[in-house]
Write a protein that binds this DNA or RNA. Structure first.
Lengths: 337, 337
DNA sequence: TAGTCTTGCGCAAACGATTGCGCAAGGTAT
DNA sequence: ATACCTTGCGCAATCGTTTGCGCAAGACTA
């Protein structure tokens, strides 16, 4: 049963039913009696305005797109969960897109989402600022916000981690534990996120009067295979750092895999601070010292920003960057200074 | 620019443009010259039929709903990824719903999805067959298939693991390695999936002339906290099994947490076979012996089934259950018999 | 008693695409 | 020259909802 049929049954016009169900009864001066009749009948027949008909008229679909580089990455899964819940509370639904860390797929998915006339796009980009990416997001006539691997140059509202601070925290912790030779496994070299983490790390190194040695820094993409290769390369040199920072979740896996391959023991031979807290971080051997992101907050903030954009409300600020949290466990060994 | 405007620019009717863009040019005898003109102009202006207008007319939304109990569970994330990719290849998109392992939330999300007039629903239920669940899925006037925690009584097409076989594999492996006292951490006691895994395990125990001791079987829900409690209870008894099978992914985490808490060492004090291969399974200490599900296959099969249902094609069979794979690593110790 | 307000709600035109039916123009057959 | 067929495409209704405008009826004022 749809709105029109319900109206016929009640002997009122579809307009009236629509206004009642949309909560505009007062605005159109529908009498209390009529409102109640309509509401009762709507409940009884489980009638709710068809989103398609409604969308055609209003231009709203009640859906937002969420584009992530990899939904199997627990960070993005957590973000998806938080966003889905937050938007559901507003009666909106989330369309999932997964670009598989591939820029070309990313454009394609974005185009599909744009064609679908979603109300807005929450994009966690692969991280590279290509001309094609810029073109496709700029021609989208809908609100867009960026999360996690933001690209500030594009001028979209952003939600993410205070990455420089997070990088700094990792290094400061290692320095406190007596480490002086610190290595870094970068993730997705071209991304703003990675550059910021490195910037913070470099500052902390400087503050501690330590040198960041290029042979102790290894770049890689964000995929698991790339991370493994980079970690292998960094750790199989004759001279190794005494500690390493995995600057991404996949990087953590890459280091664990390489360490396994090379027979290196953590933390006896190598200390490690790992980005991204995961469900298993605390229960593996050794329990991992991690940098944890407030992923639920990020989802809620992203939803709030998007909600304002959709409803034409002013944004307080163009972005929000939350602090990370260091969780010290046993993958960092205290060494003598 | 939409279809109507493009038609105006070309001096043809919207009908003609629609027929060309929908690939129905031949059926309506549109001349080759006109087809080419339309196609060229559509490409030039990037015109594609508006899914809302089209949906209103055709009744199709080009979207399927995916409802999972927990997108942060890597198994469901993998399923989501596989499904998203498979459906995208058909030009369809996936709406994500996360019930957070809560039956009530599950009904609500289902209702929302049904109201949205999606083309179909891929449901990984929380696993409990409640009257409310039955009511809501039965009143849905759209194709539904169940994945993973299927509920066979409801008669929907199903895709999942051959769970009995998987349970059997776990036990047979432990028996081969000399274990005779085997414990089980069940996951979501009421689910068909869990019962099947236990059934297979029990059969294998019987075949090996071993007794399944009730004090070595601990039930729990599917959440992490429940799994931890159950594992703690099972493992803190004075007499412990020499090996344990975690019958769910969260159960694996629960056991690892409990073992950590109790100071039990794997595999020295306790051997373990863990359900659900995860990215980190091979790189933790000790590398975990796992039962791996072919999650990508499951996604593709689910999409195929759904595709047939949507297009009114006959289903070969009402369900497909794939074999699991045992990945022997170092969490199972060989013991003397 | 006529004019003005207020209350309560319907009319009809969108929104954008799809599709059965049929018309017109040109060709072919008789 | 008439009848019939083929080719090519447009007409108009339809899907379900929303919303500006205005109508009708009763209440109130002068």
């Amino acid at each position: 049963m749809n709105v029109t049929e319900l109206a016929a049954e009640l002997g009122v016009s579809p307009s009236t039913v629509s206004r009642v169900l949309r909560g505009n009864a007062a605005k159109y001066r529908i009498s209390k009696a009529t409102v109640e009749r309509v509401e009762e009948a709507a409940k009884r027949h489980q009638v709710t305005p068809d989103p398609i008909g409604s969308g055609l008229q209003s231009g709203r679909t009640g859906m937002v797109g969420l584009l992530v580089p990899d939904i199997t990455n627990p960070f993005f899964a957590g973000l998806a969960r938080s966003l889905e819940l937050s938007f559901r509370e507003e009666g909106m639904t989330v369309q999932l897109g997964d670009s598989a860390e591939d820029p070309v797929t990313e454009w394609e998915v974005l185009r599909q989402m744009i064609n679908r006339r979603l109300d807005g796009l929450v994009v966690a980009p692969v991280g590279r600022n290509s001309p094609e990416f810029v073109e496709v997001v700029n021609e989208a006539k809908m609100p867009i916000i960026m999360v996690d691997r933001v690209i500030p140059e594009l001028g979209f509202p952003m939600v993410g981690l205070d990455n420089a601070e997070a990088g700094r925290m990792a290094v400061e912790h290692l320095v406190e534990m007596g480490h002086r030779e610190i290595g870094f496994l970068r993730g997705g070299n071209d991304s703003f996120t990675d550059r910021e983490r490195m910037r913070g790390a470099a500052e902390a190194m400087g503050d501690a009067k330590l040198q960041m040695k290029t042979e102790f820094v290894s770049g890689s993409g964000y995929t698991r295979a790339e991370s493994f290769d980079a970690a292998l390369q960094l750790l199989s040199r004759p001279k190794r750092p005494s500690a390493i920072v995995a600057l991404s979740g996949q990087g953590t896996l890459g280091i664990l895999e390489a360490v396994n391959e090379l027979g290196i023991s953590i933390p006896a031979d190598l200390s490690m601070v790992a980005f991204d807290e995961q469900p298993w971080s605390a229960f593996v051997s050794p329990p991992l010292t991690t940098i944890s992101q407030p992923v639920e907050d990020l989802g809620r903030i992203a939803k709030d920003l998007m909600w304002r954009l959709i409803n034409g409300q002013p944004l307080g600020k163009m972005g929000e960057f939350r602090k990370a949290e260091l969780r010290p466990r046993n993958s960092v060994r205290r060494v003598d200074v």
